[in-house]
């Protein structure tokens, strides 16, 4: 089951570049939340702060509080523990090139020392079914490398890999931006099905996509969160002038 995410006074820097400024936001559990905004506005940095990936860059810095299911992830946990609970799908599909499809999906568990073969088989099958990839790859799970799939399949493989560790939150950083329309539609269907089990945060620069998949939408601009409301409200009756300008395509 998904959990809610509370963000208070989150600030983030890349070197001297203040990329996130005083973000306050509550992301509800078991919903799809979309973050939109022009590129460079900080929305990717924001999701990377939620699973502490931001700090893997040596010049990066974070202050503030993020609570996932009540746990203060910066004060009370180590990055490794957080990342196991908060799955992430990246902009470009990044399956492990040296591993088979099966090993890619099982990687999160195997590399954390889980070795129950029978359970692993079940989990791999379930994750691939959940990511709508099972029927396409079930015959050569262990024969084909993850890198041999098409781009859209690779991205669904990455989703399956993230689902296999049974996360509570799923972060998606522009998951469809490198894909063709057919693959994009598949990913969006998938997001729709997954939201009953996970809290999903999706970053996108495609407003139609946000309108299609998300219940809640946040608009980011220049490192600040301008507006956060139900998707319907954001797209039909935004309360901030800047949001309206962006939605109607006047800039960005």
């Amino acid at each position: 089951m998904g959990v809610s995410i509370e963000v208070q006074n989150l600030n983030a820097w890349y070197g001297s570049n203040h990329t996130l400024q005083d973000i306050n936001l509550n992301i509800p559990a078991n919903h799809v939340t979309a973050l939109i905004g022009p590129s460079g506005c900080g929305k990717s940095t924001f999701v990377r702060c939620i699973n502490r990936m931001h700090e893997t860059n040596p010049i990066a810095r974070v202050t503030g509080t993020v609570r996932i299911g009540g746990l203060d992830i910066y004060a009370d946990a180590r990055p490794v523990e957080i990342r196991r609970r908060v799955g992430m799908v990246f902009q470009r599909p990044n399956p492990f090139p040296t591993m088979s499809i099966y090993d890619n999906v099982a990687a999160g568990l195997k590399l954390n020392g889980y070795s129950n073969r029978k359970r692993l088989d079940e989990i791999v099958e379930r994750s691939l079914k959940n990511s709508a990839l099972w029927d396409e790859v079930k015959d050569d799970l262990k024969k084909k490398s993850g890198a041999s799939l098409s781009g859209g399949q690779q991205q669904r493989l990455c989703i399956a890999r993230a689902l296999a560790v049974d996360p509570e939150v799923l972060l998606m950083d522009e998951p469809a931006s490198a894909l063709d329309p057919v693959s994009t539609a598949k990913i969006e269907d998938l997001i729709f099905q997954l939201k009953s089990q996970y809290t999903i945060v999706i970053v996108t620069h495609n407003m139609q996509q946000a309108a299609r998949v998300a219940e809640k939408t946040g608009f980011f601009l220049n490192g600040r969160m301008v507006e956060f409301d139900s998707t319907h409200k954001i797209f039909t009756n935004p309360s901030d002038k800047r949001t309206e300008d962006y939605i109607t395509g006047r800039f960005g």
Binding site: N9, I59, V62, G64
Partner: peptide
């Protein structure tokens, strides 16, 4: 070569009860 360390501020007071054992 400037490599600033990662600093995590904990400026906010911790709300109670989120970390209770029952939770």
């Amino acid at each position: 070569r400037t490599v600033p360390e990662i600093r995590v501020a904990q400026s906010l007071p911790e709300p109670e009860a989120v970390h209770s054992p029952e939770h």
